[in-house]
Design a protein around this nucleic acid. Structure first.
Length: 673
DNA sequence: CTAGGGTTAG
């Protein structure tokens, strides 16, 4: 018990320095407050009591207003709680001069106020004030200051403050860990977790939900999940959504789903996490199912939900559903991320009219909006418009980035604009500050290669700054196939296999090249290596939707009920198309050197089986939708086009969208494009 | 009483 005399009034205190709590009991004359709890600062004075009373609006008409310091502290406290920053700062400078201190809570209110207004200078003044001689800020207050610096993006200041703290609690550590995560400094974040454990501070759910961000892409996820479970912290929704998101980044959707399913109570963000997980891992169907489930549970979709739903539509090329989502997007039409997702949906679904309309309507556009349009135009065959769009973009003052320029180079490649592409490539670093990366080189190899300038393409690879990878060489290999340059193709194929020894398609191609050039021994050698390495060609698989039923065709798989009829039809169609000059490209099939069993190579083409089945269904008046139609090779596309022409059924076959267009790739039938 | 989770272009 302690007494404090202030003029004629006597206050009694119960205080406890350790817990920093103080129980104030007012003299019987002021019995309105009893057992009143508040923060306490050492060196208690009448002023403190006064401010405590004031904070809780129970100050009686008091006898202290006459003395200047008390009035100032009063003003300060009141201003902090009113969130009146200028008044608070004015009072603060006075207090600084007269060595008067307020309590931690009041300071933390002031810091909140600085944060809300982005007042960095004022925040720094508060920092200086509470660290000036005569006052010892408590851990709580320093935590608040550290958080302020973190939110102002002043990591160095935050770090310095953290380093000089006499004591650090779980909040101090968590604040720093979260800061590192936000800045993308994963390793620092994990290092701090380890230091924290060494210092004997136990992480809580706040810590883990941050730490999990730092683990994305690191193999320690399982360990962390275990510690969370052991510590009994896995019932927290924040931790759960972070876990879901993490498993999603590893592509471990079953684990993500388990974490989700085990939850008793869910909130919107957890729903968004799990829907996003499936949408991002190109399982649009499951994402949409979850979305339906979410609506049945009476949750209302927000921007993040709709963004993921749009992404699911994009992956499935579900233009109609995308349009329906668009209606809901209208209510958030100022959300840039959502608008960009909508743009991309229209582009990827091939509706450039809608995309252009949306783009024009958008009030704010960022580099992603522009890039989406440039890439969308280029993918849909409007290469020149894409390049014009890029010029409008740069003159409108938006700085292009790595991806934008990839899109522009792709547009040039698609349109065969060798010189233009080359000049963009050469000046990109000077003009836009983007250093050409491996993928830009890959685009140029594609551009030169498609244009038949194979030697220049090789030379470019040899002069690359970054090391060429398997994709780079595969791009060259694709170009060699187009231009039938066997020698260079063999060279490129070997480079691919050096870097990616499991690439079955490339073995096949290399072996075929040797067969075609009568180098039987080399061909045999390739087949042997393939066998020794136990490399198997992944069976291609194609889907087609007929009357809302999905029909899958897998290589050598005869489980489809109509497979015999479809096969007969395919052979028939190919025969008829051959008569009009179609030469099927069968270089993807592994030739048998001994020539023992030469099956019709066309039957290996699951894509063609799907196309034929679709056509048969159309003839019967059914509704056919081609799904996963974004990766179709040149031969299958040609086949479909000729078939449509021949049948004259008014079928429109769109030019294929080269989905993984910046790199050499393989279509689902195993062919290069 | 300070600290934590989900959303867009390749």
């Amino acid at each position: 018990m302690c007494f404090c005399r202030c003029s004629s009034m006597i206050y009694e205190f119960d205080f406890n320095f350790d817990s920093l709590y103080i129980v104030v009991q007012i003299h019987p004359q002021m019995k309105s407050i009893s057992n009143y709890k508040a923060k306490f600062i050492p060196g208690i004075t009448a002023v403190t009591v006064q401010s405590l009373l004031h904070i809780h609006h129970q100050a009686p008409a008091n006898p202290f207003r006459s003395t200047l310091p008390i009035t100032q502290l009063d003003d300060f406290t009141a201003a902090c709680y009113r969130r009146d920053l200028p008044a608070a700062m004015k009072a603060l400078s006075f207090m600084q001069k007269h060595q008067i201190w307020a309590d931690s809570v009041t300071y933390s209110e002031l810091i909140k106020c600085c944060l809300a207004r982005g007042a960095v200078q004022e925040g720094k003044l508060v920092h200086k004030h509470v660290f000036s001689a005569g006052y010892q800020p408590k851990t709580f207050l320093i935590n608040t200051l550290i958080n302020m610096y973190v939110k102002f993006n002043l990591l160095d200041e935050a770090r310095a403050l953290f380093d000089q703290m006499p004591e650090r609690n779980v909040v101090s550590w968590t604040t720093m860990i979260a800061a590192f995560c936000n800045a993308g400094m994963k390793h620092e974040a994990l290092k701090f977790l380890i230091f924290m454990l060494r210092n004997g501070v136990r992480p809580n759910m706040f810590t883990y939900s941050s730490v999990l961000q730092a683990c994305s892409g690191l193999p320690s996820l399982k360990q962390i999940h275990c510690s969370i479970t052991k510590a009994g912290l896995d019932s927290d929704v924040f931790v759960r959504s972070a876990l879901i998101d993490n498993y999603s980044k590893w592509g471990e959707l079953p684990n993500a789903l388990t974490v989700f399913n085990e939850m008793e109570t869910r909130d919107l963000i957890v729903w968004n996490s799990v829907i996003g997980a499936f949408a991002q891992n190109s399982d649009g169907d499951e994402a949409l199912n979850l979305f339906k489930h979410m609506k049945r549970c009476r949750f209302l979709a927000d921007q993040a939900t709709l963004t993921s739903v749009l992404r699911a539509c994009t992956g499935l090329a579900l233009l109609e559903l995308g349009r329906q989502v668009h209606v809901h997007v209208l209510k958030y039409n100022r959300d840039l991320i959502l608008s960009n997702a909508l743009l991309d949906m229209y582009c990827k679904c091939g509706s450039m009219e809608d995309a252009r309309f949306e783009f024009t309507r958008m009030m704010h556009k960022d580099v992603i909006s522009w890039s989406t349009m440039i890439i969308g135009l280029a993918q849909n065959g409007f290469s020149h418009e894409a390049i014009e769009m890029f010029q409008v973009m740069t003159s409108s003052g938006t700085k292009p980035n790595y991806i934008t320029i990839l899109g522009v180079l792709f547009a040039c490649s698609h349109a065969g604009l060798v010189d233009k592409g080359w000049s963009y490539f050469q000046s990109m670093e000077k003009d836009f500050g983007v250093k050409p990366g491996r993928e830009h080189y890959g685009c140029m190899v594609d551009l030169l290669g498609r244009a038949g300038k194979l030697n220049e393409a090789v030379e470019l690879i040899h002069n690359m700054e970054a090391e060429p990878d398997a994709v780079t060489w595969r791009t060259l290999l694709g170009a060699c196939r187009i231009h039938r340059n066997m020698d260079l193709a063999a060279y490129a194929a070997k480079r691919v296999l050096d870097l990616d020894p499991d690439d079955a398609g490339t073995y096949t191609l290399l072996s075929n090249i040797y067969v075609n050039t009568s180098r039987w021994e080399d061909a045999e050698q390739v087949r042997k290596v393939m066998k020794d390495n136990n490399v198997r060609k992944e069976p291609g698989c194609s889907w087609i939707e007929v009357d809302k039923q999905i029909h899958a065709f897998v290589l050598r798989d005869s489980s489809h009920p109509n497979i015999d009829e479809i096969t007969r039809k395919l052979i028939q169609y190919v025969q008829r198309l051959r008569e009009v000059g179609y030469v099927p490209d069968t270089s993807f099939v592994l030739h048998d050197v001994e020539g023992e069993q030469m099956e019709d190579p066309l039957l290996y083409h699951s894509e063609k089986l799907a196309i034929v089945y679709g056509l048969m269904a159309l003839t019967k008046g059914k509704t056919v939708r081609i799904r996963k139609n974004l990766r179709i090779c040149g031969d299958c596309h040609l086949f479909a086009k000729l078939l449509a022409q021949m049948e004259d059924r008014n079928i429109v076959i769109r030019d294929p969208i080269r989905y993984h267009h910046f790199q050499g790739g393989v279509c689902s039938c195993g062919d290069y494009w």
